[in-house]
């Protein structure tokens, strides 16, 4: 087993781990009781899942084809910037619609 193969195995493991985390987070979005707790599952672990998958692919291309993909790095950066914002907007919309529905809260 050469050094490259070990690194590629590591990358494959990272992609697999990302897939598992994504499945758990999707299961959480279905089973958790209300919008806010669901958004906990939707923001945190799904961000980590996509991040792991992208990092794994990045490492694979680096080791197997000796190619540093700038597009993957950009994907990771924009994932960091946008995933929490999307979660926050969903929460905010839920909060405001609840507020207009029930004025006592």
């Amino acid at each position: 087993m050469t050094e490259n193969e070990i690194v590629e195995l590591l990358a494959a493991f990272m992609v697999l781990l990302g897939g598992i985390v994504a499945i758990i987070s999707a299961y959480g979005i279905i089973t958790l009781p209300d919008v806010y707790t669901r958004s906990h599952a939707g923001t945190k672990s799904s961000t980590l899942a996509v991040l792991l998958a992208l990092t794994g692919v990045f490492i694979y291309f680096w080791s197997a084809e000796n190619y540093i993909s700038i597009r993957l790095v950009l994907g990771i950066v924009f994932l960091y910037l946008t995933a929490p914002v999307a979660g926050h907007l969903i929460c905010r919309a839920a909060y405001h619609s609840e507020e207009t529905k029930d004025p006592e809260q």
């Binding site: 758990i24 987070s25 209300d34 707790t37 906990h40 599952a41 672990s45």
Partner: peptide, 22 residues
């Protein structure tokens, strides 16, 4: 923080009988 929070939320998803109050 991303790692620790993901681990915590996965624990809360997979062990649903852990009681928590939002």
């Amino acid at each position: 923080e991303l790692w620790t929070s993901s681990l915590l939320i996965m624990k809360q998803i997979l062990l649903p009988n852990t009681s928590f109050e939002p």
